[in-house]
């Protein structure tokens, strides 16, 4: 069960600040909805635990988050896969591009896949849930960079 999503947000901070925050595990942890822990394994790898609820399925996802295609301060790709146990799995990533424009314009392209019980029971709700999570993330992120 695959989905894609595109969007843009306007951030009231210079590009360098945004870039730094995007690479800051503490910031990411605070911004990712339901994130319980985000441990840095290396400069580009994190171990994450997040609680996600889609429709009737609520589960704790554990997995690795990786940063790749690093192009400071223009953007990167953040990707990961989470294992939700009997709830199934989620994997995917987002390509993030930063452009200096009235502060910084952040554009993103998300691709994601879900499987198992999440797809079985939550597939009709997954696009809405993903959109909500993205909105929530950027709302938090705007606050973090302000």
């Amino acid at each position: 069960m695959a989905m894609v999503m595109d969007g843009e947000v306007q951030l009231p901070a210079p590009r360098e600040v945004v870039w730094a925050k995007l690479n800051d595990a503490e910031v990411l942890k605070a911004c990712i909805p339901g994130c319980e822990s985000l441990e840095k394994l290396s400069e580009t790898e994190f171990q994450a635990v997040a609680v996600v609820k889609i429709g009737p399925v609520k589960a704790k996802f554990k997995g690795k988050v990786r940063l790749s295609d690093l192009d400071p301060p223009n953007g990167y790709r953040i990707s990961g896969e989470g294992d939700g146990g009997v709830a199934g799995f989620a994997k995917g990533g987002a390509t993030v591009a930063l452009t200096p424009k009235d502060g910084t314009q952040l554009s993103y392209h998300v691709d994601a896949q879900i499987g198992g019980k999440l797809a079985q029971l939550g597939q009709r709700l997954v696009n809405g849930a993903a959109k909500n999570m993205a909105d929530q993330f950027f709302k938090n992120f705007v606050a973090a960079v302000s």
Binding site: M1, A2, Q113, I114, G115, G116, A119, Q120, L121, Q123, R124
Partner: peptide, 14 residues
């Protein structure tokens, strides 16, 4: 089934 083999009509909801 979607192309990845996920059953997307997997309950009486769908």
């Amino acid at each position: 089934y979607d192309k990845d083999g996920q059953l997307v009509t997997g309950s009486f909801m769908d």
